[in-house]
Simulated assay, not measured.
Amino acid sequence: MSYPNQPYGAPYGDRPPPGYGYPPPGPRNDGLRTTSIVALILNLVATVSCCNFLAIPGAIMAGLALGKVDSEPENAKSRLMWSWILFGSGFVVTIALFIVLGVSGAFDD
């Protein structure tokens, strides 16, 4: 009888000890990790360069999502979604503010 995990050159019938070889691959969350990093960086840049006040909680949510990628991927996806929502909402508010100020004549000297 031959065993499927019998190492090359082992005497016939000898089984390797438990844990022999590489462990089976676990779930990969590289895409979620990458998206979390991108969201974190963009929220931080938006906070500094555009005075996007909603990007601060967006950056916090992206950082929390990055911390939960391996242990709780579903929780990380939810936090990442809220990070992007806050990022986009901040830009919508900023654009609306510029439009309102432009229509009211605040930029006219």
Rank of each mutant, 00 (worst) to 15 (best):
N43W: 00
V69D: 02
C51V: 09
P18Q: 12
P27R: 07
W82S: 10
D30P: 00
P16Q: 11
L40W: 06
L42W: 03
T35R: 07
G88W: 09
K68P: 01
S36W: 00
N52K: 04
G105C: 07
L44D: 06
E74N: 12
S49H: 05
L66N: 05
E74I: 03
F87P: 01
L42R: 10
S49P: 00
S83A: 14
S78E: 08
A62P: 05
D108S: 10
S2F: 13
I56N: 02
N5Q: 12
F107I: 05
D70F: 06
F53R: 12
V93L: 15
D108W: 08
F107Y: 13
L40D: 03
Y8H: 10
P18C: 06
T34W: 09
Y20L: 06
G21P: 03
F107E: 04
C51N: 15
L54N: 12
R15V: 11
A46N: 09
S89P: 04
P57R: 03
I85T: 08
S89Q: 06
V92T: 14
A59F: 04
L97S: 12
E74S: 14
A106F: 15
G63L: 01
A62T: 02
R79T: 02
Y12G: 08
L40I: 04
G19S: 04
R33F: 10
A62D: 00
F98A: 12
G21V: 07
N52L: 05
A39W: 00
P4C: 08
D109W: 14
T94E: 09
I95V: 13
P4K: 11
T34S: 10
G88S: 14
I60S: 01
I99S: 11
S49A: 14
L86Q: 02
V69G: 04
V100A: 15
R33W: 04
P25V: 13
F87M: 09
A96W: 08
Q6G: 05
L64K: 11
M61H: 09
G67M: 06
T94P: 01
D109K: 13
P25G: 10
G63M: 02
P4L: 11
R15W: 04
L64T: 09
L64P: 01
S83N: 01
I85R: 07
V38D: 07
T35D: 08
G26P: 02
P17D: 08
G21W: 03
S78I: 09
D14E: 15
I95E: 05
L64W: 07
P57G: 06
V48Q: 09
I95K: 04
N43H: 05
R79A: 07
A65P: 03
P57L: 02
P16F: 06
S49V: 10
L44G: 07
Y20I: 05
L66P: 00
A10K: 07
S83C: 05
Y8N: 11
D109A: 13
A59R: 03
G13Q: 08
N75D: 14
D108V: 13
T47V: 10
P25L: 10
S49D: 11
N43L: 03
S104M: 13
G67V: 02
F91V: 01
P24G: 08
P27W: 01
G21S: 09
D109F: 14
R33G: 01
F53L: 12
D14M: 15
L32I: 07
Y8E: 15
